[in-house]
Each structure stands twice: as structure tokens, then as C-alpha cells.
Write a protein that binds this DNA or RNA. Structure first.
Length: 898
RNA sequence: GGGCAAUUAGCUCAGCUGGUUAGAGCGUCACAUUGACAUUGUGAAGGUCACUGGUUCGAAUCCAGUAUUGCCCACCA
């Protein structure tokens, strides 16, 4: 017999092992005729611990996968890890700095040794991650585990790079980049975050002009003044005019430039430019062919161009420069508290300095993708796949965000000045350049020292993980041949769902669309399901700097079980919205899991009492063969429950298929707790139909399995039919239409109403709960059904005597329980007054009739009419038709009321 | 500066395309409870659905505006 309480930590690990050992996670164990269903697990960074973000990702994907697997799809869920170049290198460097007190590990160790250290660190982390993923119950195919630094994935990364280079999509050029002086590397636009700072805003005299800036330290080399071509105030100055201005380190020869990016309304309408350190200025300089000069070094210190300030870090130089200008009398005004945005590195937290550097870029405007029979630009394809619905984003509102991002997308800087990652496959010899997967022949070639942005390689993840690694060892095969010959790639790509946090929609989801459409001519996935951030009870972000705010899945699982954790993150959450998590919530779902456990325990006890083995029990109420009852011989409660079960199966199946996990989960939660436990099991006491009990329990376990796989699998082993295998591979329950019995459900509700009414009488009359009372119940329509349930009603309502009287007339002072046919002859207040109810319905019906009969379409909004009149009319008509349906419903209810 | 979302019970949130008495969980209170389950059961209290207008027979739901909060985007020096 089962213990009284469920102890997840006692069984979870062994259940997981049984699943894994059985091969159930592999598509090869699924029905060979099943349609494939694939998910690529977003690879966690190989930096160590999994957090709640990973936990929610694993829970969601596991639910998708388990549901489809149980339905007979050939499911594949590919796990893996990401080398996470910048993040991992930073973690290891910090570790070395801390533990070995080496100030600059890069310098001290050199490239080879540092990489070796990182590799070792990553190996350990990956082990930890694998273990953590298992703890969550994730049913992914470990035999297909991948890592972004696998030789096979490195090969595909390089092949795509070389291909893009050859077709001119990847280019090398001097461009404005986001330079992180702290980490000594460039960053992509997405790795830069803006932070509002208030700093003084200075206006300086510059020749005849006044110019404003919050960054005086960049102004040394400024020798162009720019204004809007149509600014009347500066009409007398012509484009190309020159003049001499006294400036920080003496006079400069300046030139007037007219450009329409300048906003005449801002400040004085005139600005000087610093093309090397500002993207706008760079654009102006490019348009007019102006000189560019570097003022700030890559170490964040001023260069010789700053004269006496050379070598000073910029933040120190600023007040000194202002002071000097002040002495020269060139400061016009200083406004304190000017708010502007400062670019901060999301990686290292340092201030990002725009610099010009030679870097590798992906050209997003190159017409180089073959898509739907057309040559399109990367941008166009990225936009098209979402517009056309090839990729469907859940929740939909992220479409807008996505399109906005695409519209503003600029070339993607993919080179990073760090060592950990895929090294750029380019070699230089003097002015020669060679780009290829294999190093060039001959001496004197030196490889580019930079590595690729992590997101470049991992953006091929959905398909590079499916490439057959053996094929990539054969250097004579082209990438397209490898793709064609890889069986998994052919069978399982495109993947079905990409489930990830909305915070990496741009970093990753968009880039996967880019890289995969380019290389394969396929979308990487059909549906994008975005989850939100998990926050603390107060709605704050959980952060490493405040460990007390963190909930660690590995602390929670031993205490509450993986199932409870999963439920607490899924049920009651909607996609794309942030949610809060705290221990009481998890405890609530632990209680639910335990409730399920004990309900099963009760069922088993009933079987034992009847001398039956649950495994042998089969329910086939349609035939009634083998001495069993036919369904219409079942009790009211049995039929009502079986009928209710059918609609639950339908709702849950639809919900899961349409990614409405929370809704389906809630349906199950309330069915199990409110219907099955609180009513059906109570009614079964002393009069149980074990076949039905076992049947419903089995269906519940099946339906719940995607949500809480461990406890359901454990219980399944107790109640499963003899010939059935593990729950993980059991087929999903089907709706049996012939068991739907609306009348039984309705009557059952009446029965419950009677019981509740009696309880209420007791409360209202102040009758002590321990004391039994007498009640007379008159029924007309359902007298037979209710008579069969007399025992239950008496028992649950604590009624000492019940009388059924079919001929009784409705009593004036009787309190009626919803229907006039059931009356309780005890005066009481607060129950539904049938007369009032009828009146209300009649009024509503009359009102509806006016509007529903003979559809009169009235257009509500003139604007809409102008735009799409037909649509509006159609929509309006449809509305009226649903109105008609409502009318029908009301009429029906009125008839029921008599 | 642009965009998106949220605002419903003390707390966390449901409420789909407008229509029975606005729901759930937690918390609170009362009562129950010796055999599935105290990780329980039954019930109660608690909401003018942020505000103001509008559309409608009818609005938490649709529209407009306001306020507060949060997020994303952005080259205003």
C-alpha cells in the first residue's frame, strides 16, 4: 500500500532513470508512423548553475514534448549547452583573478593556456547542467546532446561564415562599433543597454557659433560645425565656409557643413562633430567625406590628439577640460542636471565607448537569400516569415516588437576581441586575406585573432544540432551535401516550437530566423512561444547580487518535488508575461500533488476492499459483458463523472495543442480537486464502483502527466492496466462521445445543490453541525435518480430523514433549490428564488429578441466603415448570430424553469 | 521622444469573441474531522473590476481620454 504522503525525493531520480534507460526519450521508441515533432532546447550557457528561467523553459518544453509523445507523435527534444563566449571567458577570468590573484590572466596565461582553463571549467559546468536538467524531469534525448563547440557544430559555423563571405554577405570593414574598454571587446547593438544619467550640459563658444555638449572630452579634434541647411539663423554661412576658432588647445581651422540630420530646434541648432566616437557624427562624416580622428584610446584614455591631456582617463579629463575652457572664457553656460542616455555594456557593466574599428559584419541589406523563389535581403526574409505566418509568435503582440526591431536593424557586428569561442576563419599575409574552413597552405599566414559572436554560431542551433557528426568529419563533402545526407536533419527540421524568454527574442530568435533561412531555405521553427521573467513576490527581479531574493530550483526540488515546482511556474501564468514565484505558491501545488496521491490511495483501498487488483480492472460500459454493468445501469454520479471527464479530456487536449497550458492545467486542477476528490470520492464511500474509479483515475494520470510527470508515473505503476507500459509512452486519452450525458451531469449538479441546500439550512438555522436534521424533499422529474442517491444525500448533508413525493405541489413557503421540482421544506433565505430568476430571464429574453430577430446591422464606427465596410458588416452579423444563440439558451432555461 | 503591456478581493492572478448572482488559489475568520488526504473538509467575510467620458437594451469586457506602474526601442549633439 502507498504511504500516507507523497515523498518526491524518494522516487523522482529512479523514475527518471527508468525513463531514460527505457529509451523513451528517443524518437526511435515512438510510433514509427508518427508525425515528427521537434524542439531544440535553448542551450543554457556553460557558466554553471541553472536558474528559474531555465526551469520554466524546461517545464514548458517538457509539457509540449510529453503531450505530443503521448499522442503518438515521433518526438525529438535535443538538449545541449552553449559555450557563451564572452560570459564564460569573463567568469573564468574573474575566477582566476580571485583565486590566484593574477591581475590580468589573459596576459599571464596566454591564449592556449587560458582556453585550456576555460575548457576544463566548461566540462564541469556541463556535467552540472545535465544533472539539473534531469532533476526537472526533462524528457530530452541525451543520446543526441550537442554543444556549440562540438567539432561538427564548429564546422557548420565556419562553413556558413565562409559561404556568407563568398557571397558578400559577410564583410570586413571600418565601422562604428560599441567598444567595451573594460572587457576590451566590441559588442553588438543588442548587448548595449541605455541608462539614464544626469550630467552637466555645457555650451561653449566655438568661433562665431555656440555649441552644446555633455561630453567635452571628445571635442579636441572637432573641426567641423554642422547645421541644418534650411536654418535661417545661419543663412549667411555656406557649406564649405572655413574659419578659425580658438579651442581647447589653441586655434583650430574649422569648416561649415550643412546636413539635415541636425535638429534646428535642439540647443543652438549647431553642433561640432566627433566622427570617431559618435555614430551620428560618423554618418555625417561619411556623407561629406570628412576626416576622422581618434581621440580616445581603446583603454579609455585620451590619445596624443588631446595634447596636454593625453593619457588621462576620460572621466578624469572632463572637469579639467571644462576648467581650461572656462579660463579661456569659452564656456557660455553650464546647465546641471541634464538627463541623457549613457551606453552601458550588458556584459561587463562598463561604459561603452563608440569607436571605429575594423570588424566583421553581416550585411542585412544584401540581396542574397533565396526565399520563395525570389532573391531577397536578409531583412526582407526576416520580416516575411512572420508576416506570412510561416513563423507564428505567441503571444502575438510580440509581432510588433519584432517588426520594429527588423525595421531598425543595422549590420550585425560578429567579431569579438576575446579568445573563447569560434575563431574567425580568416588568415592574413601582408595585404592578402584568405577565408576558408581549413587553414591556407603555405607559410606566413596568420589567423585573425578575434572570435565570433556567440549568437552567430548558436543561431544555427536548430539545424546544426541535427547534422550527422560523422559526415562533418569528411572534409570532401560540401555543407549542402552534409545537410542533404543527415537523416535527422531531413526528418526533424524545421522544428515545431521554439520556447524561450522574450528577453532573447532579438539576440537569438531573430538571428536563428536569419541564419536558417539563409542556409537551409527553411524557417528554423514554426511557432515561437515566449515566456516571461520569473520575479520575486514583490515583483522584483531575482538577482545574483541579492541572493536572498533568489529561488534556486535545486533547493525547491528536494523540498517540494519537481512536479510542484513545474505546476507553480505554469498554471496561472500567461505567455510573455512576467510572473511571481514564492514558496507558498509552490507549497500549494505540492498539496495538490499530495491530494492526487491520496486520491489514488483511496482508490487502491477501495479495490483492496473489494478484493480486486486494479491492474485487472477494465472498464467497458458500452457492452456490459462479463457480468459488468452497462453504462445506463451505472449510478448517477458515475455517469455524471464519466461525462464530465469527456469534456475535460477535450478541453485539456485542445488547450495543450494550442499552447494554452495554464488554462488546461487549471481545468485539470479543478477537475481533480473539486469534482473527483470532493464529490465523486466522497459519494463513493461505502458504495464504490471500482471500475469507474480506476478508469477516471487512469485518465487523470494520463492528462496530468505532461504537467507533473513524476507523481503520475509513480501512481500509474499502481493502477495501470496489466498490459500497459509506462505512462510516458502511453497514448493520450480520447474523448468517448457515447459517454457524454448532459442530463446526468445536470442532475448530478441538482443532487449537489440539494446537499448544499441542506448544509445551508443548517448554517442559517444555527443547527449544530453534529446534530442531524430532517428535511422533506419533493421531486418530480428526477425522483428516481435522486432516490438512488438517497444514501449519499443523507450522508453528506447529514439529513436524518428524506421523503420523496412525486405528487406534491410546490409549496408556497418552501425554499427551492434552483429547480421547482426539488424543494426543501425548511424556510431559509438566500437560495435562488425561482420566480425572480424567471422574471429576470424573461426580461432579458424580451430585450434580446428585439435586437436579434431580423438582423439589423448598425455600424458603430464610421472610421471603420470607410476602411473595410464589408468586414465590419460581416463581423457585426456574426455578433448578432451569437446573440441568437444566447437567446436560444435563455429560452431553454426558461423552459426548464417551467 | 516612440511603442507595448498592466491596473479586478488583504496578496498572487483568471475572466476567450460584451449577456445568469465578477471567479480561483493563498491569507483571514467560524465550524468540522478517530480510515484516502491536517499537505484535509464545509462555509463565511472581503470587490462601486484605476478614473472620466462614449457606443449599447446591457460594459470588467469595445472606443476615446486621464492617471499610476512596468517593460522594450531610440543617433537629439
Amino acid at each position: 500500500m502507498l504511504p500516507k504522503a507523497y515523498d518526491p525525493s524518494a522516487v523522482e531520480d529512479s523514475i527518471y532513470k527508468r525513463w531514460e534507460d527505457s529509451g523513451a526519450f528517443r524518437p526511435e521508441s515512438c510510433d514509427p508512423k508518427g508525425e515528427p515533432f521537434t524542439i531544440s532546447m535553448p542551450p543554457p550557457n556553460a557558466t554553471g548553475q541553472l536558474h528559474l528561467g531555465h526551469a520554466v523553459m524546461l517545464a514548458l518544453e517538457d509539457i509540449f514534448i510529453r503531450f505530443q509523445r503521448m499522442r503518438g507523435r515521433k518526438t525529438l527534444w535535443v538538449p545541449g549547452t552553449d559555450h557563451a563566449s564572452i560570459a564564460t571567458e569573463a567568469v573564468v577570468i574573474r575566477q582566476i583573478q580571485k583565486e590566484e590573484r593574477i591581475a590580468d590572466p589573459r596576459k599571464a596565461l596566454g591564449r592556449e593556456k587560458l582556453i585550456a582553463r576555460i575548457k576544463k571549467f566548461v566540462e564541469e559546468s556541463r556535467g552540472t547542467i545535465r544533472n539539473q536538467v534531469r532533476k526537472m524531469g526533462a524528457s530530452c534525448d541525451w543520446t543526441r546532446e550537442r554543444y556549440t563547440m562540438d567539432p561538427a557544430l564548429a564546422r557548420t559555423t565556419y562553413e556558413v561564415f565562409v559561404d556568407m563571405y563568398k557571397r558578400g554577405v559577410i564583410y570586413r570593414g571600418h565601422r562604428m562599433v560599441n567598444w567595451d574598454p573594460k572587457l576590451q571587446t566590441t559588442l553588438s547593438d543588442d548587448e548595449v543597454v541605455c541608462e539614464a544619467r544626469t550630467e552637466p550640459f555645457y555650451t561653449f563658444q566655438y568661433g562665431p557659433f555656440q555649441i552644446s555638449t555633455s561630453r567635452p572630452e571628445t571635442k579636441f579634434g572637432d573641426k567641423y560645425v554642422v547645421m541644418h541647411p534650411e536654418d535661417e539663423r545661419y543663412r549667411k554661412y555656406k557649406h564649405g565656409d572655413t574659419f578659425t576658432a580658438e579651442w581647447i588647445n589653441g586655434p583650430v581651422h574649422a569648416t561649415v557643413i550643412k546636413d539635415s540630420v541636425v535638429d534646428p530646434a535642439f540647443g543652438t541648432g549647431v553642433m561640432t562633430i566627433t566622427p570617431w566616437h559618435d555614430a551620428v557624427d560618423f554618418g555625417i562624416a561619411e556623407r561629406h567625406g570628412l576626416e576622422k580622428e581618434q581621440i580616445i584610446g581603446f583603454d579609455g584614455k585620451l590619445l596624443p590628439a588631446a595634447g596636454e591631456f593625453a593619457g588621462t582617463p576620460i572621466e578624469k579629463a572632463r572637469p579639467l577640460i571644462v576648467e581650461k575652457l572656462q579660463k579661456k572664457g569659452l564656456v557660455v553656460t553650464t546647465v546641471e542636471g541634464h538627463e541623457h542616455n549613457v551606453a552601458i555594456s550588458s556584459r561587463g557593466g562598463g561604459i561603452v565607448e563608440p569607436q571605429i574599428k575594423e570588424q566583421w559584419f553581416v550585411d542585412v541589406n544584401k540581396r542574397a537569400v533565396n526565399w520563395k523563389g525570389k532573391k531577397m535581403t536578409i531583412k526582407e526574409v526576416m520580416s516575411d516569415v512572420v508576416h506570412s505566418g510561416d513563423v507564428h509568435i505567441i503571444p502575438e503582440r510580440f509581432n510588433k516588437v519584432y517588426f520594429h526591431w527588423i525595421d531598425n536593424l543595422r549590420d550585425w557586428c560578429i567579431s569579438r576581441q576575446i579568445w573563447w569561442g569560434h575563431r574567425i576563419p580568416a588568415w592574413y599575409k601582408g595585404s592578402e586575406i584568405y577565408v576558408g574552413v581549413e587553414p591556407p597552405e603555405g607559410d606566413g599566414w596568420e589567423q585573425d585573432s578575434d572570435t565570433l559572436d556567440t549568437w552567430y554560431g548558436v543561431s544555427q542551433w536548430t539545424w546544426s544540432t541535427l547534422v550527422d557528426p560523422k559526415l562533418t568529419e569528411d572534409t570532401s563533402l560540401s555543407l549542402q551535401e552534409i545537410i542533404k545526407r543527415s537523416p535527422d536533419l531531413q526528418a526533424f527540421h524545421p522544428t515545431h516550437v521554439m520556447e524561450t524568454g522574450y528577453d532573447i527574442l532579438f539576440f537569438w530568435v531573430a538571428r536563428m530566423i536569419l541564419m536558417t533561412t539563409y542556409t537551409l531555405g527553411q524557417v528554423p521553427f514554426k511557432t515561437v512561444y515566449l515566456h516571461g521573467l520569473i520575479r520575486t513576490r514583490d515583483g522584483k527581479k531575482m538577482s545574483k547580487s541579492h541572493p536572498e531574493t533568489m529561488i534556486d530550483p535545486l533547493d525547491i526540488i528536494p523540498k517540494y518535488g519537481a512536479d510542484a515546482l513545474r505546476l507553480s511556474m505554469i498554471v496561472g501564468q500567461s505567455p510573455g508575461a512576467d510572473s511571481r514565484l514564492y514558496e507558498e505558491k509552490i507549497a500549494g501545488y505540492r498539496n495538490f500533488v499530495n491530494k492526487l496521491w491520496n486520491a489514488s490511495r483511496f482508490v487502491l483501498l477501495q479495490c483492496e476492499a473489494a478484493g480486486l487488483r486494479p491492474a485487472e480492472l477494465k472498464m467497458d460500459p458500452s457492452t456490459g459483458s462479463g457480468g459488468k454493468l452497462k453504462i445506463d445501469e451505472y449510478s448517477l454520479a458515475d455517469r455524471a463523472m464519466l461525462s464530465r471527464l469527456q469534456s475535460v479530456i477535450q478541453k485539456v487536449t485542445e488547450g495543450l495543442a494550442e499552447y494554452r497550458l495554464s488554462e488546461a492545467g487549471e481545468t485539470l486542477y479543478s477537475f481533480v480537486w473539486d469534482d473527483f476528490c470532493d464529490w465523486y470520492l466522497e459519494l463513493s464511500k461505502g458504495n464504490a464502483n471500482t471500475a469507474v474509479l480506476v478508469h477516471i483515475l487512469r485518465k487523470i494520470l494520463q492528462l496530468l502527466h505532461p504537467y507533473c510527470p513524476f507523481v503520475t508515473e509513480e501512481l500509474w505503476s499502481q493502477v495501470k492496466p496489466e498490459d500497459a507500459g509506462m505512462l510516458i509512452s502511453k497514448s493520450w486519452p480520447e474523448v468517448k462521445k457515447e459517454w457524454v450525458d448532459a442530463e446526468a451531469e445536470e442532475t448530478f449538479l441538482q443532487l449537489i445543490s440539494v446537499i448544499q441546500a441542506v448544509r445551508k439550512i443548517r448554517a442559517d438555522q444555527g443547527i449544530e453541525p453534529s446534530k442531524e436534521i430532517s428535511a422533506i424533499i419533493h421531486t418530480k422529474k428526477w425522483v428516481e435518480l435522486l432516490e438512488s442517491q438517497e444514501g449519499h444525500i443523507r450522508r453528506m448533508g447529514k439529513i436524518s430523514s428524506l421523503t420523496f413525493d412525486t405528487d406534491a405541489k410546490p409549496h408556497k413557503n418552501a425554499a427551492s433549490v434552483f429547480l421547482p421540482e426539488i424543494e426543501v421544506h425548511v424556510p431559509l433565505e438566500g437560495l435562488i428564488d425561482v420566480a425572480a430568476e424567471r422574471k429576470k430571464l424573461e426580461k432579458e429574453k424580451a430585450e434580446l429578441e428585439k435586437y436579434v430577430n431580423g438582423i439589423e446591422v448598425k455600424l458603430k464606427n464610421a472610421d471603420f466603415t470607410a476602411r473595410a465596410p464589408e468586414n465590419v458588416i460581416a463581423a457585426e452579423r456574426e455578433k448578432k448570430e451569437t446573440g441568437a444563440e444566447k437567446l436560444r439558451k435563455i429560452t431553454e432555461r426558461l423552459q426548464m424553469l417551467g
